[in-house]
Structure formats: C-alpha cells, structure tokens
Design a protein around this nucleic acid. Structure first.
Lengths: 264, 264
DNA sequence: CGTCCTCTTGAGACTACTCAAGCGGGGTGG
DNA sequence: CCACCCCGCTTGAGTAGTCTCAAGAGGACG
C-alpha cells in the first residue's frame, strides 16, 4: 500500500537467523517479560517468518469463528471489536506490533468478538497446534505469553476504568500515554511521539465518544500544546502533563519504558 | 449480621461429604463447564470447608498486595474495583457465589485492583500453593477454572461494550440480565428475580453513572413494569423485554440457564 | 479534474451530572 | 418500647458535557 510498508517482507524478518533480533517486535516484547534463550528467539523468529500484508479495515478473525489459528501483528494497528445491533462499534483492545492474539482461548471454541485491522498491517498466522507444541517445548515462551495475556487483561480493566469514569480529555490522554509506552517497548515510538495510522472515528469507537467530540477534544489538546497530530504522526509535546491529566500509571504494562518520569 | 446469613456455617458446607453437592455454588458452577468426578467434587468441597463471614464493604485483597491466596465467594456479592485520585470508584467485575478469584494471576506478583465485599459475604481463602497442587492433580478442575477465567474475560469485554456504547437504561438492563443468568446457574436466582443486596451507589460505580441517575433509570424501569425492587429483592416482571432492551446474548456466560428464551 | 474520505466547525438538543432538600426504614440507645 | 439517627432512596432544578445533524474544507487518489 504505502512505500514504508513495502520494504518489510517475510523474508526480511526471518533472514536474520541467529543474530540479534532487537528489531523483531514479538521478541522485543517477550524479552522484557521473561529472559529468552537463543533457541527461544530462533523459534519465535521462525513462526513469524511467513507474513502477510493486510489492507486497512480488514477483518482477520470473525465473531463466531472456530479459533483455528492465532494472529501475530508485526506492523500496523489492529483491534478487537464488537458490533451492536444498531451498527455501533466498540473497540475492546488494540493489537500493536509484537502482540499475539488469543494464544490459549481454544477452550472456548468460538470467538465472541472480531479481530480487524485499522491500518495496513503485516501479520503472521500461526496454526494452533504448532503454537501449542512450541509452548510445551519452550517454557520461557509459554511463561512470557501467559504474562502477556495477564497484561492484556489488566489493560482491559484500565479501559473499563477509562470509559466508566473519566472525561473525554482524560480518556484520550490515557490512551495516548498507553500507546506511547506500548509502542516504545517494541521500538515504534519515542518519548516525542509515534505514528498513529488511525482515524478519529476509530478513536471515538475506542473511547466511547463521537467522532465529532474526539475532534474537539484533540483541538483542545493541541491548543494546550499537549500534542500535535499531523498526517497520522502524533507528536507528544508535554508528556508529563499528559500523564498527569490521564492519571497514567504505566506499571500495569510491565514494560521498561515510561518508568523514569516521576522523581522519588 | 442478618439471620439468613447466620444459618450457613463452614461446617454445614463441608459436612455433606460425598453426597450430592448441588447446593454448593462452586461445584454447581464448575460442573456446568466440565464434567467432574466424585473425587473432584470432594476436593472442591474440602477447600471451601473453612469459611469466614465478612461484613459489607470490607476489602479482602488490596491493590498492591502480593497475591498469597485466592478468594472464593460462597454467599453474597463481592467486587473487583479501582479507585481514582479523585476518589471515584470504578467497579470492574462482580464476584457472586461460586466465583473463585484470580486462580492463576500469581505470575504478575501484585494486584492491580482491590477485591471487596458489597454485601455481607461468606468467603473461603485458599492458599495459593494448595490451589496449585489441586490443579496439578485434578485436571478437570484445572480445566474448569481456566474456562471460568476465560468467561470472566468475556464478561469484562461485555462490560466495556456496556459503558462504552449503551445508554443508562440499556446498561442497567444488561447488568440485571447478566446477574440473573449467573445467579440462576448457582441456584441464587429464578426467572422471576433474585436478591441483590447492593446500593444504587454501587450500581452507579459499576455502570459509570451517578447514583441519582441510577435511581431515575430504575424508576423508569419500574414505571414500564420491567422490574420491581423492594428491600434488596429484585423482581423481574418482563424478562424478554429486558433482554431485548439490553441486546443481551447469554452465550458468553456458558451457562445452561437463559438459553430457552428465543424461539428459532 | 473530480470524487471520496476524513477532518473541522457551528448550532441546537439531549443525556446525564451536581447540588440540594426531603423522606423513609432499620438499627441503636435511652 | 419508643425515639432518635443515620444511611440510602427519592425528587427537583439548574448545569455541564457530549451527541446529532449539517455543511464546508482539505487531501489523496484515480
């Protein structure tokens, strides 16, 4: 789709073999949770060798689907969402590079929500039986994935807090802070900002706000010199104040990023 | 506290031994998820032998606590909640009889929210190492608890949908429908209603509404002959319409109750 | 160059909130 | 046993935040 996406290919990601994998989002992510051996990283590299480019706004796994494979995001933004009868969409979670979706939900047998891309994405599909073999043979990976699932749950609880009891400005700020930390952990963000290739409508469906109100809220944030947002590039101008507005506590993300902000 | 609570004692719950356990909420709950052997039920009975009565509005596990034991609710309503700096409370989940809290979150090491009672409760505290022994020796129980955790996650997603995109009336209706099914599954509700020993403030903190608006919403539901609510006793007058308003789909709860309502 | 999609802004309406006051019922102390 | 008191419920009035509808502007792409 865009030039910046084309340069990444399945071959590129797999070819580095046993050398450093610091550019591989899944490995970067899991390494922060559990120390991994060379063998572990090699296996992880291998299962994400075959990647597929997916267009924006494409459903990857549908509600009701029988859960035959896991989805790993390597580039771009994907989400879990549910639709109401009225057509309204509620986004339940973001899947950013390094996120592996539903590694152990096989017990339930059937999806209760849909996985979809927001932007153009590179994803790998991992057959469920291959994945469970790996989990058995590589306890570090298994532990890391279990931990990462618990973190996703903690994140969902934060979101519930967000839409349940925060104002539009606070919600927005919280989401931006969360994404900053999560993306920085996999090398897709700095303290200064990141690429956020989604629409204001998407943000509204995430935060329980109308697209119009998202727009007005972002204007306020721009006017107060908290952020800039131009052609999908988010610039963070005042991270401390943004975090203060959001009451953002990065601990739940279990990441090394974002912990240096508060003096003791 | 109240007379109806006094008559339940730890001894009472444990004494039935190997006979039928249909009155035991944990067993009733897990049996619906995975077939259990006599040995399984005996073990479950044993771990919940020592119960403790807890006063309303008592914190059982605090945010930041090191996760040394699991909590099993046998009677009454408990919740997971988080507090904001402003003092606002967001309730994240209800724990009703038969719910076992956090069986496998040991990996995270520390709670990111607080567990607390709403009403007077009977609870059992289960040491984490005893629990993990049981999970190893009784795969059925382990499977059932894992399933039950996945169901709790699906429930959290439904709540996020609820506060994110439904009106006050719809949210309220959805919560009442969910509780009806969950309580019926453990014998604490019928199609006609159940005891709901919580305040309107609690409901507000659950649904992201003010106590005043909860009150007005309940008045509307009473005026429309959807429900009655008198001295903590909820009467459901028109379950089909309630479910229709809520767009309630009980499938996510994986319970045998509540599936007969829609003709094909 | 036209079209479509997203962003932007305005105006008016509505939902839900806050503050405030009165009511009722169950538990407690005299 | 009665009176009081406290907590939770109820209702009103005014307000704030957010929504809907609508129209126009700015880009990206064919």
């Amino acid at each position: 789709m865009s030039a910046s996406l084309e340069q990444v290919s399945g071959k590129h990601l797999a070819s580095s073999g046993a050398s450093k994998h610091h550019h591989h989002p899944l490995i970067r992510r899991l390494e922060q949770l559990v120390p991994l051996t060379e063998v572990d990283t090699a296996v992880l590299c291998q299962i994400s060798a075959v990647t597929r480019q997916v267009a924006p706004h494409t459903d990857l796994v549908l509600e009701g689907d029988p859960l035959t494979e896991a989805v790993l995001v390597l580039q771009g933004f994907a989400v879990r969402y549910k639709l109401r009868d009225t057509g309204a969409r509620q986004i339940l979670a973001y899947l950013v590079p390094g996120d592996l979706c539903d590694p152990d939900a096989a017990l339930l047998g059937e999806m209760d929500h849909t996985i979809s891309t927001l932007s153009a994405c590179f994803v790998a599909r991992i057959p469920r039986d291959l994945l469970s073999d790996i989990l058995e043979e590589h306890p570090n990976v298994a532990r890391a994935l279990r931990l990462s699932k618990l973190i996703e749950e903690a994140t969902t609880r934060c979101w519930l807090m967000n839409v349940g009891s925060r104002s539009a400005l606070e919600r927005m700020a919280h989401l931006l802070c969360e994404l900053q930390v999560r993306l920085q952990a996999v090398g897709f963000a700095t303290e200064e900002g990141y690429e956020m290739p989604i629409t204001q409508q998407d943000l509204g469906d995430t935060l329980g706000l109308s697209n119009v109100h998202v727009n007005r809220t972002m204007r306020v944030m721009r006017e107060q010199s908290l952020i800039g947002w131009h052609s999908k590039q988010l610039t963070i101008l005042d991270l401390p104040r943004l975090q203060e507005i959001a009451e953002f506590e990065p601990k739940y993300l279990r990441t090394t990023a974002g912990h240096e902000r508060l003096p003791p």
